[in-house]
């Protein structure tokens, strides 16, 4: 799939979602808003996963982005949603730029556990800091967009549109990124980091940038979530929250950027039904489902019907074939 085709596809999907949003009942509108806001975080995990690593601590960046936005709103009275989303991404990206080069030294289990540990450190700090509302967190007022106050049903729709557009654009950029030199070399790192070093690339450098990009996406997700919820609390950084992000990334699979949305929506739908019928066994259901996906659908949703094409390309150019597997757009 060429870049042009991806771009056209992205514009089409975003446009369709904007149109559909106008028809959705408010509960479903909120659900999709949450799915988009959380999906963008899992998009970051996907970037890391393509290099063969899994982060169990993306909640760290989710919370950094969320708190940065919430504090800015309450302390300095900034209210423009676009500015705030950029701010959330920048704050988390800064943290990612610092932790990235450190974490890039580690592979496999070390990386996974260190990311988990870092996020739990932040959780521990947030719970104890009374200035940030402690374990209860705090509320923020509805934001504005270009001076327009987002209230009532039209405000809900505007927040939905914001989440869909921001996440859609992020997915579009990720789709292009995974098809760049860096994206291909990241795949090669997953398969054989030693060889990649012997071809003259810096495995650490490439992975550190992937972590930083994932951090930005985590922060953007946190910002979108806090704007839509109007509330923030330390559980943004808790390991169960990170677990949901991992779950969505695994369910979507490493090959498709757009499958992230389907996976994120599945998670939100299943969650709202579990909340109704099995309020105390949400993690349990999530865990069982995760095991089932790893066992029966190792490539995730993105690999459905794609596996054969990917392995045995029918048309000439192999990279196009390699991409065919990725292109569930």
């Amino acid at each position: 799939m060429s870049r042009t085709a991806i771009s056209v596809g992205a514009v089409g999907v975003i446009g369709a979602l904007l149109a559909i949003g106008a028809l959705l009942p408010s509960w479903l509108l909120f659900l999709v808003t949450m799915a988009a806001s959380h999906g963008v975080v899992s998009l970051g995990i996907l970037l890391i996963m393509r290099g063969g690593l899994v982060s169990f601590g993306q909640g760290l960046f989710f919370a950094v982005g969320g708190y940065a936005v919430a504090l800015t709103v309450n302390r300095w009275g900034a209210t423009d949603a676009l500015v705030l989303v950029g701010l959330g991404g920048a704050a988390a990206g800064l943290v990612g730029a610092i932790t990235g080069p450190l974490l890039a030294r580690y592979s496999g289990i070390f990386f996974g556990m260190l990311s988990l540990a870092l996020s739990m450190v932040l959780y521990g700090i947030l719970v104890k800091s009374t200035a940030l509302g402690g374990s209860d967190g705090f509320n923020i007022p509805r934001p504005t967009i270009l001076g327009w106050r987002l209230e009532g049903a039209s405000g809900d729709y505007a927040l939905y549109a914001l989440a869909v557009v921001v996440t859609g654009v992020a997915a579009w950029l990720c789709a292009i990124y995974t098809r760049s030199v860096r994206g291909l070399v990241t795949l090669a790192i997953q398969a054989n980091p030693l060889r990649v070093e012997y071809l003259g690339a810096s495995v650490r450098g490439i992975m550190a940038l992937n972590f930083a990009l994932a951090a930005v996406l985590g922060g953007v997700g946190g910002a979108l979530t806090v704007l839509a919820l109007g509330h923030i609390e330390p559980t943004f950084a808790y390991w169960t929250q990170s677990g949901e992000f991992v779950f969505v990334a695994i369910l979507a699979g490493p090959r498709s950027v757009s499958a992230i949305f389907a996976a994120s929506l599945v998670l939100e739908l299943v969650r709202s039904f579990s909340n109704l019928y099995f309020p105390n066994t949400w993690q349990l259901a999530l865990g069982v489902f995760l095991l089932a996906v790893i066992l029966f659908l190792p490539g995730g949703i993105g690999s459905l019907g794609q596996a054969r094409i990917w392995r045995r390309p029918t048309k000439g150019r192999d990279l196009a074939a390699l991409r065919a597997g990725e292109a569930a757009e």
Partner: peptide, 21 residues
Amino acid sequence: QLCVELTAMANMLVACAAAEA
């Protein structure tokens, strides 16, 4: 030392591109 899941061509492209990554 190859990336066994990628095609031969993709391996060659990785080799051509890696030092420019």
